[in-house]
Amino acid sequence: MALVNHSTISEFILLGLSAAPHFQAFFFVLFLEIYLLTLTGNLMMLVVIKADSHLDIPMYFFLSHLSFLDFCFSSVTVPKLLQNLLSQKKTISVNGCLAQVFFLFESGATEACLLSVMAYDRFVAICHPLVYGQMMSNELCKGLVWGSWSLGFLIALLNILPAINLDFCVDDSIPHYNCELPSLFRLSCSDVSTSFTVLLSSSLISGLGTSFLILYSYARIVSTIVSISSSSGRSKAFSTCSSHLTTVLLLYGSAFLRYLMPTSGSPLELVFSVQYSVVTPLVNPIIYSLKNNEVQAAVKRTLRKYLH
Rank of each mutant, 00 (worst) to 15 (best):
C97T: 00
S53W: 11
P79S: 11
L39P: 15
G108W: 04
S75M: 08
M44G: 06
K89D: 10
C72A: 14
K80P: 04
Q88R: 14
N95M: 07
A99D: 04
A51P: 06
G108T: 04
F71W: 06
G96N: 10
V101E: 07
E106K: 00
V47A: 11
F105R: 01
V47W: 12
E106A: 02
T40Q: 05
S93Y: 01
S67G: 03
D56R: 12
H65E: 05
C72Q: 04
H54W: 10
G96A: 10
F68Q: 03
A51Y: 06
Q83R: 13
M44F: 07
N42A: 08
V94C: 03
S93N: 10
L66Y: 07
D56E: 15
H65Y: 13
D70C: 15
F71C: 14
N84T: 08
T40H: 07
I92L: 06
E106G: 00
D56H: 15
S87Y: 15
M44T: 14
L86D: 07
C72T: 09
K90S: 05
L55D: 02
M59I: 02
K89Q: 13
C72L: 14
C97Y: 05
L81D: 05
S67E: 02
P79Q: 10
C72S: 08
I49L: 08
K80T: 10
L46D: 07
G96D: 09
F105K: 00
Q83G: 04
P58A: 10
S107P: 06
P58Q: 09
S74D: 05
F73Y: 13
I49D: 05
L98P: 00
L39T: 12
S53K: 13
F103M: 09
A99W: 06
N42T: 06
F105I: 00
L46H: 03
L98E: 05
N84I: 03
F102A: 02
Y60I: 00
A51K: 12
K90Y: 08
V48N: 07
G41W: 08
C97W: 01
D56Q: 13
V101H: 05
H54E: 14
S64E: 08
G96I: 06
M59E: 15
P79N: 08
L98T: 00
V78K: 05
T77H: 08
A99N: 03
V94S: 00
P58S: 14
F73T: 15
D52R: 02
L63G: 05
V76C: 13
L98A: 02
T40R: 01
S107V: 15
L63C: 08
S107A: 12
T77A: 12
F105T: 00
